[in-house]
Design a protein around this nucleic acid. Structure first.
Lengths: 246, 246
DNA sequence: TGAATGCGTCTCGGATACGAGACACTGAGA
DNA sequence: TCTCAGTGTCTCGTATCCGAGACGCATTCA
């Protein structure tokens, strides 16, 4: 088992902490949040600023994220085959159905929005790229969970305490989830209406390629039939699956 | 002057290196590229993998970027006022002119693409988000350089050695650049045709808000008049400027 | 099959990195 | 104006972190 590298770990935790803040924060705030010695925090932040991962705003006495964090994040998108292969099919989906679409991956019990393709005339979505949401509340997450083996889903959601709610709806127990996922599995797609954001609905289909846990979804302001959207979404997910299998 | 934090710096350099690779790479390759001791590289990579910034692929004996790098990169977009404020105006610009648009910031002598809004039916651009290009070859970069004080431009481009070329065109000396920027300044916008990618042209206008060096651009397959696009681009840049000044 | 190469892990010793705490400076509030 | 709180920088001493190098294992090639 390799040994710890405490300063490296601290740097990465600083990045993660800062990326969760809406505004730049003070060094002391960072030190407290990560339980770092105050003077060490200054040395660390300065080293990170020297590499452009952090910026110091002396007038405000705050520290914020630097441009290198942004660049490195996009390096991930270029390296990750899923993100690379999915971009064009997703663009085609949007052009075809005229609604915004996204590519989502599962991480633990949450989904992470990897690509968002906005449709013309539609506002940017709450499900902004980089955002995490509880998997069981989103169509995207449900589509992925439905494609997982039962024991794996059980390991992720062992009891009622595993369930969070955003708008008061959505499954609240393993039994409810299992029933919901059985329906999803049978249909081959998942839906969600108002469980993430009131007034918005989604339909999602899983990408089924070995160890990749991801899905394609379309989101729109809910007021009507999902029927027209299911086939394009499923075809897009199938196309991405095919591309991944080469 | 605070002291170095070598392990933190090494971790960040690993991230930067990995983000520039098209595929995951071996630990030895990373160690060589960054001049790290081999055994230290393993400890470092493992610590980074424990924080999800790096992933180990044991079957391939390679190491690639992890999902935390992606998330942190998007935390930057949420925290950076420019990226946040520009998203809706840029979406409106695309809906209005029917061409893809982007928001660009200057970093040294390069521009960095921060937001890309793809227009319906248009292919994804070579100027993908997270990509850097030489500022003097792009409309976006020229618009920003034209809004800088003369001595600052001279400091960035002191001599002929400062100039790179991608397609054999574009300014090659400080004198040529100065002339080009004078025209740009007079018109209030910059253009580029085939200097980044043959067959594509751009028009860009600067965002002028204090210390922010950024611009808005529209890109299209070049074959005709720029005239219809200039006003919408300039208005979008002016709107973003206004928002930033509140 | 055996040898070579490369990956990953481990131990040891010493020097470098780290935390504690002090100091200087600045800005805000009484 | 003075005081206090908070930010940023610095020194010192020590213990923890680091690099060197060895070892084990797996894969590939002759």
């Amino acid at each position: 088992m390799p040994r710890p590298v405490p300063a490296a770990t601290a740097a990465l935790r600083v990045l993660r902490f800062l990326s969760g803040q809406p505004v730049p924060v003070s060094a002391v705030r960072i030190a407290e949040a990560l339980e770092l010695p105050r003077s060490s925090a200054y040395h660390l932040l300065t080293a990170m600023a020297d590499e452009d991962f952090v910026v110091h705003y002396p007038d405000d006495r705050t520290w914020g994220m630097g441009i290198a964090a942004w660049e490195v994040g996009h390096g991930f998108a270029r390296q990750e085959p899923l993100a690379r292969l999915a971009r064009v099919p997703l663009a085609r989906l949007v052009d075809r159905v005229g609604q915004s679409a996204h590519l989502v991956v599962l991480h633990g019990t949450e989904v992470l929005y990897v690509i968002e393709e906005r449709a013309p005339g539609r506002p940017p979505l709450v499900t902004d790229v980089g955002v995490r949401l509880p998997a069981h509340l989103t169509a995207s997450g449900r589509a992925i969970l439905a494609s997982l083996p039962g024991p794996q889903v059980t390991a992720l959601y062992p009891d009622k305490a595993s369930f969070t709610s955003r708008t008061g709806s959505g499954p609240r127990s393993p039994t409810e989830l299992r029933r919901l996922l059985a329906t999803t599995r049978q249909r081959g797609y998942a839906t969600e209406d108002g469980e993430v954001t009131a007034g918005f609905a989604s339909v999602a289909a899983p990408i089924e390629a070995g160890t990749i846990h991801a899905s394609v979804a379309v989101t729109w302001q809910s007021r009507g039939d999902v029927g027209d959207l299911v086939e394009p979404v499923r075809q897009t997910a199938a196309e991405i699956t095919r591309r991944l299998r080469h």
